[in-house]
């Protein structure tokens, strides 16, 4: 309890829980609002209910997975280039 109060209010578990709840409500709200403010789709699909939300989420998921996969191939230790460059 003592530890919890001594840390910055932003990182206390209570605040973080509150932010997750508030965030979830906000997310739900942006989708539900679509019932009141119809989104004009330019190509049909992008006017579907919750398209923006789903598209944003799935796009990010794919990008993170692609990055993760590429990471296995491309990631190297930070000093990878050092041998070749120190000798030059």
């Amino acid at each position: 309890m003592n530890q919890e109060n001594s840390d910055h209010w932003l990182v206390r578990p209570k605040t973080i829980r509150g932010m997750w709840i508030g965030g979830s409500v906000l997310l739900a709200l942006t989708v539900v609002l679509q019932l009141v403010v119809p989104i004009k789709g330019y190509f049909g699909v992008d006017g579907w209910f919750g398209f923006g939300a789903a598209f944003g989420f799935v796009a990010c998921l794919l990008m993170v997975l692609v990055a993760k996969g590429l990471g296995y191939v491309l990631k190297r230790r930070e000093d990878y280039y050092q041998d070749s460059e120190e000798s030059s």
Partner: peptide, 25 residues
Amino acid sequence: QLLLFSGLAFFILLPLMKRTETISL
């Protein structure tokens, strides 16, 4: 919608994005 759900994706996928002391080829 687009941006906030991207934000959600970030925090859900955070374990996949653990920083490593690496560079990328």
